[in-house]
């Protein structure tokens, strides 16, 4: 066989209350085996309580060439942050 099994991205929830976080990838012929491989590869030391596997081919990523167009406009909108506003110290609970 000279074709790799499809690639799956692995996400682990470290503990209840936290979101799943990307940790890496595995090759597997189907979702069930992808989960088994993910478990053996990424949770040998109690790293998580839940796993997601997603076919890598299903992920659509933004293009680094568009980084400026995508992310720069946020830079000049500092009024979105609470510290932008000067409120006198004696005004409380705000």
């Amino acid at each position: 066989m000279n074709k790799d099994w499809p690639l799956w991205e692995v996400f682990v929830r470290a503990k209840g209350g936290m979101s799943h976080r990307h940790v890496g990838s595995v090759h597997a012929p189907d979702a069930e085996i992808a989960l088994r491989h993910a478990r053996d590869t990424y949770t040998r030391r109690m790293e998580g309580v839940s796993l997601w596997v997603v076919p890598s081919a299903s992920i659509t990523a933004s293009d680094p060439a568009d980084d400026a167009a995508n992310f720069d406009p946020a830079q000049d909108k500092i009024y979105r942050h609470p510290t932008f506003y000067d409120i006198p110290d004696d005004v409380k609970h705000i």
Binding site: N2, K3, D4, L7, G24, S25, V26, H27, D40, T41, Y42, R44
Partner: peptide, 23 residues
Amino acid sequence: VQDEAGHGLYLYSAAETLGTSRT
């Protein structure tokens, strides 16, 4: 020994992102 297998797999995955297949 199982860890070493895991380390190999993390690294193959990293290398694959550069465009060379596992096979």
